[in-house]
């Protein structure tokens, strides 16, 4: 593993490990004091390795939301399918950075697949010719397997995903994340600081409990200098399949994503309706964009894709530092 220095003794736990500097193998190692202090020595060499590995990835977009279950994984997969379809010559990759609750293998219909390790790194799983995926879900023996890891181990996994997956040339790399503003998010941003990130797409639902967390997420983006490409409001309206009447299942009592965007100066990319067929497609791994091209959700998606692409080109990748450790 790359976190083992060259001059390390046998059985070195790795500089990123919780046991760094404390394991029995560390006795006598010249790096022991640095490791034990918990302060990383100089810039992590992984940043350069990742920059090189992702040199041929044009746009790196992080999908975020403070709140759980608002549809980050759904939006990521929809964006992935839509971007790949829009331009058959473009290549799109999805990295599932949700280590404890990976959803992408199921949502993209490739659960049960295996990733292969070759000389040039891990090959992602191909969903279609130009849409590929890497997820910890591919590394688990059974769907019941729980990944009971504290932060440092999750961070190590994310570092490996970013430095060791052989994506080939990509136009877009979409990164799905777990809810919150913690290890996974900080690690993705930190490890990509040399390679550069285009920005974040923030997903929310209309009700105040969700907006509450999304405000925090946008503040997080500002704190770490990550440009917000825009906000997607998901599950906005429900259209009854029986009588076609529209209703608000999650009422926007405080003005929904629109008011939030206006207050925080973010751009609203679009609103996706709540569609039971979309939930079915996620469960079965079917490609919703291909199955129901004329549904209101796919029509709404078009505007979102257009917005994401526009902003992408307008904004040069930025570099940020000073992240909390």
């Amino acid at each position: 593993m790359s976190s083992v220095p060259e001059n390390a003794p046998n059985h070195c736990p790795g500089t990123q490990s919780e046991d760094a500097g404390k394991a029995s193998a560390c006795a006598g190692c010249p790096n022991q004091n640095i490791c034990a202090s918990g302060v990383p020595a100089g810039p992590d060499p992984a940043l350069e390795i990742i920059k090189e590995r992702l040199a041929n990835v044009k746009h790196k977009i992080i999908i975020l939301s403070g709140k759980g279950g608002v549809g980050k994984s759904t939006v990521t997969s929809l964006l992935g399918h839509a971007l790949a379809k829009l331009n058959p010559d473009a290549n799109v990759g999805i990295l599932d950075a949700d280590i404890c609750g990976p959803s992408q293998p199921r949502v993209l219909g490739v659960s049960g697949e295996q990733v292969h390790n070759s000389g040039s790194g891990w090959s992602p799983v191909y969903v279609t010719d130009n849409l590929s995926l890497m997820s910890i879900g591919f590394l688990l023996a059974s769907p019941d397997d729980a990944v009971i890891w504290r932060g440092p181990k999750k961070n190590g996994m994310i570092k490996q995903f970013l430095s060791e997956v052989d994506w080939g040339d990509l136009d877009y790399l979409l990164i799905d994340t777990p809810p919150g503003t913690s290890d996974e998010h900080l690690s993705v941003i930190q490890y990509l600081s040399a390679a550069g990130v285009s920005g974040a797409v923030v997903v929310t639902t209309p009700q105040e409990v969700a907006l509450l967390d999304v405000r925090k997420e946008i503040q997080f983006c500002q704190k770490v200098g990550l440009p917000v490409l825009g906000v997607v409001e998901n599950m906005s309206l429900f259209v009854c399949p029986n009588c076609q009447a529209r209703s608000e299942i999650f009422p926007a009592t405080t003005g929904g994503a629109r008011a939030l965007c206006a207050a925080l100066g973010a751009r609203l990319l679009g609103a996706l309706p709540l569609d039971p067929l979309l939930a079915r497609c996620c469960d079965s791994g079917a490609d919703f964009v291909a199955e129901l091209p004329h549904s209101p959700a796919v029509l709404a998606l078009r505007a979102i894709v257009a917005g994401t692409r526009l902003r992408n080109i307008a904004r040069p990748p930025r570099v940020f530092y000073t992240l909390p450790v």
């Binding site: 403070g66 504290r150 932060g151 440092p152 503003t181 913690s182 290890d183 900080l186 509450l212 405000r215 925090k216 997420e217 503040q219 997080f220 704190k223 770490v224 909390p324 450790v325």
Partner: peptide
């Protein structure tokens, strides 16, 4: 403030 984000890694949360 209700907008304040808690940006903490594991050990601080612990």
């Amino acid at each position: 403030s209700r907008n304040d984000a808690v940006v903490w890694r594991g050990p601080k949360k612990t």
